[in-house]
Amino acid sequence: MTRYNPLPFQPCDENGPVFDEPWHAQAFALAVHLSESGVFSWREWTEAITKEIMNAGDLEQANVENTYYKHWVYALEKIIKQKNIISNKELKIKLEEWRMAYLNTPHGNPVTL
């Protein structure tokens, strides 16, 4: 993993990518995992994330962690839908399940689906 080469705009220091919030690292790890298991190639992923950033247009903000990983999540959703792995409907339903799970779980109980 130390061989990891940062992608364009990716927030990094001399040792590799840096994250500002846990979900940034989780989103990052999801893409790495999916490419390592062959769901898509790293090259495909590089193209997908670069396209997402270019289409969003705001290049001055693109290398700020929160903005960068927002593009990352959107690109991940798109590539997974394009490959017919998960449908838009499935994404929407599951997202709502998570949201409701957080809202309905009484304090002191773990949030699960």
Binding site: A29, L34, V73, E77, I85, K94, W98, R99
Partner: peptide
């Protein structure tokens, strides 16, 4: 306590991909 929309979207992807057997939570 409700996490941000993007945080929830990452959780959503992780859950669905795990259900479909495409990712292993421990490897992740």
């Amino acid at each position: 306590h409700l996490p941000s929309d993007l945080d929830l979207r990452v959780k959503t992807l992780e859950t669905l991909l795990t259900e479909k057997g495409l990712i292993d939570p421990e490897t992740l």
